Amino acid sequence: MFSFIGRGVFYIFIGSVIVGDRWWKYTSGALIGLVGLAYVVLEYIPSIEPPANMRDADAGWGAEQV
């Protein structure tokens, strides 16, 4: 979840789990899978920078100094 590829693989996995025998399950799984594919493509576009929460591992939860 801390890189575009990791987030994309996660969404592709969730989309493949959702796909079922009904049309609404197939449609929702395909849409989530396409979002995951878009995240993987974003990793290879050099002009797109990841957000701050993906760049700094120390800037997230529990990083405050005591």
Score class of each variant (00 low, 15 high):
I5L: 11
I5R: 12
G6D: 06
G6H: 01
R7W: 11
V9W: 01
F10H: 10
F10K: 11
F10R: 08
Y11D: 13
Y11T: 00
Y11V: 01
I12R: 08
I12N: 04
G15M: 05
G15S: 09
G15H: 02
G15F: 03
S16T: 10
V17R: 10
I18F: 06
V19G: 09
V19K: 15
G20L: 06
G20F: 09
G20R: 08
D21S: 10
R22H: 10
R22M: 08
R22C: 12
W23Y: 12
W24P: 01
W24K: 12
Y26P: 03
T27M: 14
G29R: 04
G29W: 05
G29Q: 08
A30Q: 05
A30T: 15
A30S: 14
L31N: 03
G33T: 13
L34N: 06
L34A: 14
L34T: 11
L34H: 00
V35T: 13
V35F: 12
V35D: 03
G36C: 04
G36K: 01
L37R: 04
L37C: 14
L37K: 07
Y39I: 02
V40T: 07
V40R: 03
V40I: 14
V41A: 13
L42W: 00
L42V: 00
L42N: 03
L42F: 05
E43V: 01
E43W: 02
E43Y: 06
Y44Q: 04
Y44N: 08
Y44W: 11
Y44M: 06
Y44R: 07
I45F: 04
P46E: 05
P46G: 02
S47F: 06
